[in-house]
Every structure is written in structure tokens, then in C-alpha cells.
Design a binder for these strands. Structure first.
Length: 146
DNA sequence: GACACATTTTGGA
DNA sequence: TCCAAAATGTGTC
């Protein structure tokens, strides 16, 4: 398995991946050098809006989690959905969706930052600032593309 | 096997 | 209108 990192604001984005499958993505303050798929560097620079043809190993399988992750990955660039909407689509409950996002093995690929609370931003790990920055960037890019 | 969770919704005061 | 508690599935201890 390959491993590498790139930067987003003050954070390092560490990616563990194979050819076209991403196994794990983490946000760390420091990271070792290494290469990441070009989709990551483009996306984080605001020059790409998806990770095609990359997929996440979290999307595989038929557990409730996998269904939730598939629903989340359908959210279009620059849009958001609520925990309740995801829960309904996946046939489960909002609490479970929150748990799934919290344990999301591959942020960015599964755009957990696009999942918000009914009446607020929701949460994000390890830092809500990352979620806010990603959403702000996506909104900006969408606006520029118009 | 119990408990913790990035929530939401509903019922009672 | 606001507060409190239940619902619910998975991973970790």
C-alpha cells in the first residue's frame, strides 16, 4: 500500500492508498513526505471537484455504514445534506449517521464535511475549522464556475 | 457485554 | 417555547 501526504491550510492530509482505492485518509498536524493521488492535490487546491476514478474501501460491503457512506458520496460538490436526510436514505437513524461520520475512514472521498445538522453545522473531527474551510472553499469554487 | 457517539425528534412543563 | 429523554447501530474497551 502506498502512503503520502499533502497540505490543506494548517493541516496535513495523509492518504493511504493503492492504485484506485483509498483505504484511509487522516488529518494530522505533521506528516511524512510522500505522494498522494493527483485528485487530492487538485481538490485541495480548488482545481478539482471530484475524485474520479478513485474509490474508498469504506464504500464496499452492505453494512449500514457502507450504505451511509454511499449516500454521503452522492452529495454534489458545494451542496450539503442533513444527518436526518442521510439517515432516511440509508434506512437508519440520524445518530447512526453521526457515528458513521465520526468514524469515517476516508474524509474528502466521502464528503463528510457536506453533512450538516438540521439546525447548525454539526461536528467534525479532528477540527471543525477544517469542515468550515472546505465548505467555504467549495462555495467559492461553485460561484466562480458560474 | 456495556458504553460512547459529529443527532434528531417528540412530549411534557 | 424550551428542556429532557428516547431512539438506534457499530466500534471500542
Amino acid at each position: 500500500m502506498l502512503s503520502g501526504s499533502c497540505s490543506f491550510n494548517l493541516w496535513k492530509v495523509v492518504v493511504d492508498w493503492d492504485e484506485a482505492t483509498v483505504h484511509r485518509v487522516r488529518f494530522l498536524k505533521t506528516a511524512d513526505a510522500g505522494s498522494v493521488p493527483v485528485q487530492f492535490t487538485k481538490f485541495l487546491a480548488g482545481k478539482g471537484t471530484d475524485f474520479y476514478p478513485l474509490t474508498s474501501s469504506a464504500l464496499l460491503g452492505d453494512s449500514v455504514y457502507a450504505r451511509i457512506y454511499r449516500e454521503v458520496s452522492k452529495i454534489p460538490y458545494g451542496k450539503t445534506k442533513t444527518y436526518a436526510e442521510i439517515a432516511e436514505a440509508a434506512g437508519t437513524h440520524a445518530r447512526v449517521v453521526g457515528n458513521a461520520m465520526s468514524r469515517n475512514p476516508t474524509p474528502l472521498i466521502i464528503p463528510c464535511h457536506r453533512v450538516v445538522g438540521t439546525d447548525g453545522l454539526g461536528g467534525f473531527s479532528p477540527d471543525i475549522e477544517i469542515k468550515k474551510a472546505l465548505l467555504a472553499m467549495e462555495k467559492k469554487i461553485v460561484k466562480l464556475q458560474k
